[in-house]
């Protein structure tokens, strides 16, 4: 049966989540998205929908590492050995969305020795893991707060460098693994260590919508989708296509985007006032602001883009204060009011 996913543009509300996902799709180097919040808020739906929305990629057919035929420098060892890949070996495919199951072992994630071939022929062959499968796509972990800390460490490391280095069982190799890490979870189940939190580029607090009208609309659309998926997808096809064009345009814009010194100074001020130490916060803030500018089709970043980006880039980098009951987004909003709106 055809697997039609829920159209991205048909998702009601959840603007923060949608923006964060779109920006990570425009600029994958942003360092992943952490979506923390209530159950039943459409996190999984949004991520699945995003993958279906994104432009298709060219992939070297048969490559286990999803190599891009246009950047020969980035070929994996296997593609390098082959003769020049001609157009006949190019395959078109949607970006990968790999679901990382909670119980996954290190072997499964990183890749490991191909047992079958090792035992049968005594060959040392590497069997790529989930990270290779997620190259140029998304790696999604639901309930990331329940994942073993050491595994999260590894993932964040690879996500930041884009390279997976294997040194185990007599194998020694590296392969490209550029992916956007998306973690979701429910704070009621436990929290993430601050060190891990800080390494996610963007974070969103996903709240369940409380506006009755919005809720009625959600139920209505869900119902229509379940009733006839193809017809529903057709209704939203044009909106999705328009959004796809916006993403493509933003991708071409973002490399040329200029950020003025004034904007950078304001970004630094904001970070200092919120006590988010380290350069990570500032870097993520600037990147996210560029993302917002590109998404809006602008060629330079303004204070307004900074204001939009601040909650996504900073709210998970505040120092925890057990005595302050206000949520982190309120604290960010307060600081934004003080510094950016003068």
């Amino acid at each position: 049966m055809q697997n039609v996913s829920f159209p991205f543009s048909a998702i009601v509300g959840q603007d923060d989540l949608k923006n964060a996902l779109l920006i990570s799709a425009i600029d994958p180097t942003i360092g992943g998205v952490l979506a923390f919040g209530d159950r039943g808020t459409g996190k999984t739906t949004a991520i699945r929908a995003l993958a279906a929305l994104l432009p298709v990629q060219n992939i070297v057919a048969g490559c286990r590492y999803r190599c891009d035929p246009e950047t020969p420098g980035g070929f994996c060892a296997e593609c390098m050995e082959k003769d020049k890949p001609g157009p006949e070996v190019i395959k078109k495919d949607a970006p990968a969305v790999v679901n990382l199951p909670l119980g996954a072992t290190e072997d499964r994630v990183l890749g490991s020795l191909d047992l079958e071939r090792a035992l049968a022929g005594g060959e040392l062959v590497f069997e790529p893991g989930l990270l290779a499968g997620a190259h140029r796509g998304f790696l999604y972990i639901d309930e990331v707060n329940l994942l073993d800390d050491h595994l999260v460490d590894i993932l964040l490391d690879v996500a930041a460098s884009g390279i997976n280095r294997i040194e185990r069982e007599g194998l020694s190799l590296t392969h490209a693994a550029e992916f956007v890490l998306i973690g979701s979870g429910n704070p009621e189940e436990g929290e993430l260590r601050p060190q891990l939190l800080d390494r996610f580029g963007l974070s969103v607090e996903v709240m369940t919508p409380l506006d009755p009208k919005e809720r009625v609309e959600i139920i209505r659309r869900r119902e229509a989708f379940e009733k006839d998926r193809d017809a529903f997808a057709k209704t939203w096809k044009r909106k999705d296509a328009a959004l796809r064009r916006r993403i493509e345009k933003a991708r071409s814009l973002i490399a040329e985007l200029s950020v003025s010194d004034d904007v950078l100074e304001r970004a630094a001020e904001l970070c200092v006032s919120l006590g988010s130490d380290g350069l990570r916060g500032e870097l993520a803030l600037a990147r996210a602001a560029r993302g917002f500018a590109a998404l809006a089709g602008k060629d330079h970043v303004t204070i307004e883009h900074l204001r939009q980006a601040a909650p996504l880039a900073l709210s998970h980098r505040l120092r925890k204060d057990p005595l302050d009951d206000s949520t982190s987004s309120t604290r960010v909003a307060r600081a934004v009011e003080e510094i950016l709106v003068q």
Binding site: M1, N3, N99
Partner: peptide, 18 residues
């Protein structure tokens, strides 16, 4: 809760009807 989370993910892994 870890097993529960994995089970929920497995149940909803595939979106296609049936």
């Amino acid at each position: 809760s870890e097993t529960g989370a994995l089970m929920a993910a497995e149940i909803e892994k595939c979106d296609a009807p049936g």
